[in-house]
Computed example of a mutant assay.
Amino acid sequence: MSALRLLVVDDHPVVRDGLRGMLGSQPDFEIVGEAAGGDEALTLVAALRPDVVVTDLRMPEPSGATLIRLLRERAPEVRILVLTTHDTDADVLPAIEAGAIGYLLKDAPREELFRAVRAAARDETVLSPTVAARLVNRVRAPRALRGGTVSNREREVLALVAQGKGNREIAAVLHISEATVKTHLLHLFAKLDAPDRAAAVAAGYQRGILNH
């Protein structure tokens, strides 16, 4: 049986070296390449056609869910396993929705990482316990939040969305992180039963949350 061909993607050389050594210790794994950012990862996947891409989320663009989506579009046969330190809803949900087959945190034991890589190659979903819990809570959240009261902070976020500001601009104005902005938006979408930003703004005006 041929070894699984792996591509490691992370913008930190020390992390890439560590993963290369760790994953390379397994006789059924072959590290065919490594990339420090999204563009390099896309180029290498096209050239090398690995079985599994083990990737971080935040690095030189394209990164995160955008990189995962592009990888899936250009090489649908490649399986993508996220290995990161980030486990917020704003990180986890977009990555899974974009097509990641697995999502592990970097503090996972090495044996868990090995199992996850093999499972990803078999097209089986593998999630760290905290990530799995977030997904379960997110599935339940819309029902619990629907029709709920919009908080003052959520109202501020919605008002800035109505002004046409993007997540980065909103984060700067409110002095919060982009991840927090995304979380507020997810809650707004659920509470207002809105599929996107435009629908949320429209619902905000209809319900008097925003002033014309």
Rank of each mutant, 00 (worst) to 15 (best):
D39P: 00
L7G: 12
L145D: 04
A172F: 03
R140T: 00
A159Y: 03
V54H: 10
A199W: 10
A116R: 12
Y205G: 00
V150Y: 14
K165Y: 06
L23Q: 02
R134N: 00
E30M: 13
E124P: 03
A35Q: 06
A171K: 10
L93P: 00
G18Y: 14
E178N: 15
A203K: 15
R74G: 05
T125P: 02
A46I: 02
P13R: 14
D89G: 02
A95T: 07
N167G: 08
R20M: 10
R69L: 06
A121K: 12
G33L: 11
P62S: 00
H12K: 11
E111P: 14
R110H: 14
G99S: 02
L158I: 12
A198I: 06
V52R: 02
V161M: 09
L44S: 01
L6S: 05
G204P: 08
V173W: 14
R74P: 14
A179C: 02
N211Y: 08
D10F: 13
S128L: 08
L158A: 02
L83S: 04
R79T: 01
K191R: 15
D91M: 02
L158K: 14
H187G: 00
L188W: 09
E77A: 04
N167P: 12
D107K: 07
A41L: 07
F29Y: 10
D51A: 07
I96R: 07
L104C: 02
A100V: 05
E124K: 13
R153Y: 05
T55H: 12
V117W: 15
L127P: 10
E97T: 05
L160D: 03
A47N: 03
L113H: 04
F114L: 11
I101A: 08
V131F: 09
S63G: 02
I176H: 13
D91N: 09
A202T: 12
T43N: 08
R16F: 15
G38P: 09
V15I: 15
K182T: 07
A36S: 05
H86L: 05
M22N: 11
G21R: 15
D196R: 06
L186H: 03
V92T: 05
Q206Y: 07
T88P: 12
L185V: 09
R72V: 08
S177W: 07
L7F: 07
H212I: 05
L48W: 13
R16A: 15
T125A: 11
K182S: 07
L145N: 06
I31V: 14
V14S: 10
L93N: 00
G37K: 08
I96H: 06
E111D: 15
E97N: 09
S2I: 11
N211W: 13
L81M: 06
R49P: 03
A100M: 03
A159L: 13
V173G: 01
V82S: 08
E40H: 04
L70D: 05
N152H: 02
V78Y: 07
L135M: 11
R49N: 04
G24W: 12
D89N: 03
D89E: 11
D91Y: 14
V54M: 00
L174F: 01
Q206C: 06
D39R: 13
